[in-house]
């Protein structure tokens, strides 16, 4: 196959993905309050965003929560996938079933049942309850992604490793983890995305001590979607892109 066709296709899909984002960035500089018609260039929404302490704090809370939830769910999810793939134990079907139930449960059902559970066992609503809930709903996404990768994996490798005297842990660390790395990355990214975006579950399991961004954004639409939200989206986008470029730069320097 020629080289330009895949490239053109990739470019096209990226364009489609970024068009709505472009609109959002554009409208974040819109002077008009309605957020719908164009009223000239302005930075007023950025200004009012930075004056909104609660909003900025919620943003940091959200980022921290998403980072930790994605990481914990990747670790547990990968271990679950490895266990399902390699170990023989009773109740495998049940384990699979539970993951399926999480995926299928409507958010509101998950939200209320988790809140009821936290209240029953006396977990304070705040960062911990949010983390437990987020990791739980991210988990199946990681497990399924990692399982898909493992199912194409050559079974003789771990056996060879064990024959050479490697312990289970060593074998996992040196043979399996490198193999499932792309899936771990994919799973982590999915988890981070899901956590950053969740509203319904967070509404119920968060307390006043720890508010996160999506909650503010969702209820903000009641008084009309304010252009501050666009400004916020733009900042988040710029932040992610800068981090991305930075990591690329560091990587390329460390290689040299």
């Amino acid at each position: 196959m020629s080289r330009w066709l895949p490239r053109a296709y990739l470019t096209l899909v990226y364009l489609l993905l970024y068009v709505p984002i472009g609109i959002l960035v554009l409208f974040s500089f819109n002077d008009s309050r309605s957020g719908y018609t164009w009223g000239g260039l302005s930075l007023r929404w950025y200004q009012s965003l930075f004056n909104n302490n609660a909003m900025v704090e919620a943003m940091w809370n959200s980022l921290w929560l998403a980072l930790s939830a994605a990481t914990v769910s990747t670790v547990i999810g990968a271990l679950t996938a490895l266990a399902l793939h390699r170990y023989r134990f009773r109740g495998k079907k049940m384990l699979n079933g539970m993951l399926f139930v999480v995926m299928m449960s409507p958010e509101i059902v998950l939200a209320i049942s988790l809140l009821a559970l936290f209240l029953l066992v006396g977990i304070q609503l705040g960062y911990v309850s949010l983390l437990l809930a987020h990791v739980t709903f991210c988990l199946p996404f990681v497990v399924i992604t990692v399982m898909a990768r493992l199912s194409g994996f050559d079974e003789r490798l771990p056996e060879a490793a064990r024959d050479l005297g490697a312990s289970d842990f060593t074998m996992t660390r040196t043979v399996l983890i490198p193999v499932i790395m792309p899936a771990l990355l994919a799973g982590w990214l999915l988890g981070f995305t899901l956590s950053l975006d969740d509203v319904v579950v967070s509404t119920f399991v968060s307390g006043p001590s720890y508010e996160i961004l999506p909650l503010r954004i969702y209820s903000m639409v009641r008084v009309g979607l304010k252009p501050e939200v666009n400004a916020l989206g733009t900042l988040l986008l710029v932040f992610s892109l800068v981090m991305l470029m930075l990591s690329q730069w560091i990587l390329s320097r460390s290689k040299r």
């Binding site: 984002i21 719908y36 990214l189 975006d197 939200v229 989206g233």
Partner: peptide, 22 residues
């Protein structure tokens, strides 16, 4: 891959609204 996922870090409700403008 990161470029693929970055748009998805903007709140989905906000992106749905952007789609609506389109």
């Amino acid at each position: 891959i990161f470029l693929l996922i970055v748009p998805f870090w903007t709140n989905s409700l906000v992106r749905t609204y952007a789609l609506k403008l389109l």
